[in-house]
Simulated scan of single mutants.
Amino acid sequence: MKVAERAQELGRIVGAVPGPVTSATSAGPHRLLRDKDCAVITDAADLYRALETRDVERGSSASLLMPERTVSSAWEMRQL
């Protein structure tokens, strides 16, 4: 949580990948989603949307999204 709080202080995107509610290893991401202004990341497209939102908020005219290409998996994202 301290890393997420510091990232938010610095204006960085904080994202969390939710997991099964029955898993102890999912407690941290679920707490971030519940208590912090945190982006839900379930696939590569969610990550791109979070980054684009950040750019719009900062007033950047350059979009990280490539409209001609849809990314459907983390594997595809690594290939870009």
Results as ranks from 00 to 15, higher is better:
1 M>I: 14
2 K>D: 15
3 V>Y: 14
4 A>C: 14
5 E>M: 09
5 E>G: 04
5 E>L: 13
6 R>N: 14
7 A>V: 10
7 A>L: 15
7 A>M: 15
9 E>H: 09
9 E>Y: 09
9 E>C: 05
10 L>Q: 14
11 G>N: 09
11 G>L: 12
11 G>C: 09
12 R>C: 15
12 R>P: 00
13 I>H: 08
14 V>C: 10
14 V>R: 05
15 G>A: 11
15 G>E: 12
16 A>W: 12
17 V>W: 11
17 V>C: 13
17 V>M: 15
17 V>D: 03
18 P>N: 08
18 P>W: 13
18 P>R: 08
21 V>Y: 12
21 V>E: 14
21 V>I: 11
21 V>S: 10
22 T>F: 07
22 T>S: 15
22 T>Q: 10
22 T>M: 05
23 S>I: 00
23 S>R: 06
23 S>L: 07
24 A>E: 11
24 A>K: 11
24 A>S: 11
25 T>H: 08
26 S>G: 06
27 A>E: 12
27 A>C: 02
27 A>V: 13
28 G>V: 10
28 G>Q: 07
29 P>T: 10
29 P>N: 09
30 H>V: 01
31 R>N: 05
31 R>T: 07
31 R>F: 12
32 L>T: 01
33 L>E: 07
33 L>S: 02
34 R>I: 08
34 R>Y: 13
35 D>P: 00
36 K>G: 00
36 K>R: 12
37 D>T: 03
38 C>H: 03
38 C>F: 09
38 C>G: 01
38 C>A: 04
38 C>E: 06
40 V>Q: 06
40 V>D: 01
41 I>M: 09
41 I>C: 05
41 I>P: 03
41 I>L: 15
43 D>V: 00
44 A>P: 01
44 A>F: 12
44 A>S: 10
45 A>D: 15
46 D>M: 07
47 L>E: 06
47 L>A: 06
48 Y>R: 07
48 Y>D: 06
49 R>A: 14
50 A>N: 04
50 A>L: 11
50 A>I: 07
50 A>F: 11
52 E>M: 04
52 E>A: 12
52 E>W: 09
53 T>Y: 06
53 T>H: 05
54 R>E: 02
55 D>F: 13
55 D>K: 12
56 V>H: 10
57 E>L: 14
57 E>H: 02
58 R>Y: 10
61 S>M: 10
62 A>F: 11
63 S>Y: 02
65 L>Y: 01
65 L>A: 02
66 M>I: 07
67 P>T: 01
67 P>W: 05
68 E>A: 10
68 E>K: 01
69 R>E: 14
69 R>H: 12
69 R>N: 04
70 T>N: 08
71 V>N: 02
72 S>K: 04
74 A>I: 09
75 W>P: 00
75 W>V: 08
75 W>L: 14
75 W>F: 11
75 W>H: 04
75 W>E: 13
78 R>E: 12
78 R>W: 09
79 Q>D: 08
80 L>F: 14
